[in-house]
Simulated scan of single mutants.
Amino acid sequence: MNISERPPMPGPEAAIDYGHGEFRVVRPGAFVRCAVTGAPIRLDDLRYWSVEWQEAYVSPEAVQLRLRRAGRR
């Protein structure tokens, strides 16, 4: 089972402030959603995000797709 197949923990979606190398929880919750796929991401599993766009991503592939859609790759 990979990260995108795990259901989120019960609870509301969190609001996050994404910084360089770390993030800050603005509104507590159990998960955030991938900006590309809409897949829930547990906060413990959150590894990929954009500081510029303030978005979370479920995988490196989702990051690459976002960059292509923005015309950056």
Rank of each mutant, 00 (worst) to 15 (best):
M1N: 12
N2P: 13
I3W: 00
I3G: 00
I3K: 01
P8W: 01
P8Y: 03
P8G: 05
P10S: 10
G11R: 02
P12H: 09
E13R: 14
E13K: 15
A14S: 03
I16A: 09
H20V: 13
H20D: 15
F23M: 07
F23K: 05
R24P: 01
V25Q: 02
V25P: 00
V26L: 14
A30N: 07
F31E: 06
F31L: 06
V32A: 10
V32R: 06
V32Y: 08
C34H: 04
A35V: 10
A35G: 15
A35S: 15
V36N: 15
A39M: 14
P40T: 10
I41E: 10
R42I: 08
D44K: 11
D45E: 10
D45A: 07
L46Q: 06
L46A: 09
Y48W: 15
W53M: 11
E55D: 12
E55F: 09
A56V: 03
Y57H: 13
V58H: 01
V58G: 02
V58Q: 02
S59I: 00
E61A: 15
E61S: 12
E61F: 05
A62K: 03
R68M: 08
R69C: 00
A70K: 11
G71N: 03
G71S: 02
G71Y: 05
G71I: 03
R73T: 11
R73L: 13
